[in-house]
């Protein structure tokens, strides 16, 4: 019996894409130069994720990357987030972050946006109330970075 089979009921949380992104994040590196950065921190578990953003001249996100330490959920969430933020305005990202927060807490969110669909593998976290903050940690850092300049928040 393989390890994965014996945790069948945890697979709603740990879908393949989550395990894969948690193990091998695509966007976990230091973005330099950058236009804004902020640190997200989860004091209960000690996890820290720093998000760095680059902007286009018209204020859209040109690039996003993160560094830090976290669990499979927070790293996968940061990685999927970095996938979807490119080309987005600040206003769009605020709306997306709010919708993702609802998705994480309730398992669904009413926002017609393909980006949200890309984040749906994380909806299983809604069945694990103590893990919701793992999924939202990078988004909180993103919002802080959008509000902060290069000095960071």
């Amino acid at each position: 019996m393989s390890g994965a089979d014996t945790f069948q009921d945890a697979r709603s949380l740990y879908q393949d894409i989550i395990l894969d992104r948690g193990r091998n994040p695509r966007h976990m590196h230091r973005l330099d130069p950058f236009d804004a950065r902020a640190q997200g921190e989860n004091p209960m578990c000690g996890d820290q994720i720093e998000v760095r953003l680059g902007f286009t001249s018209d204020g859209r996100v040109a690039d996003a990357a993160f560094e830090g330490r976290g669990c499979a959920i927070s790293l996968a969430s940061a990685d999927l987030m970095a996938d979807v933020v490119r080309g987005r305005t600040r206003a769009e990202l605020h709306a997306l972050a709010a919708a993702f927060g609802t998705l994480a807490r309730t398992g669904d969110a009413p926002l017609a946006d393909a980006a949200l669909d890309a984040l749906r593998p994380l909806s299983g976290v809604s069945e694990y109330p103590s893990r919701v903050k793992c999924a939202t940690l990078p988004w909180n850092a993103l919002l802080a970075a959008l509000d902060a300049g290069p000095g960071g928040a």
């Binding site: 945790f7 945890a10 949380l13 740990y14 578990c45 000690g46 669990c71 959920i73 893990r131 793992c134």
Partner: peptide
């Protein structure tokens, strides 16, 4: 935290964190 979540799914309560 991932360890604690999977243990919990097997009925095992442990603490994880700082």
């Amino acid at each position: 935290h991932d360890v604690a979540t999977l243990l919990d799914r097997n009925g095992i309560a442990v603490r994880a964190g700082q």
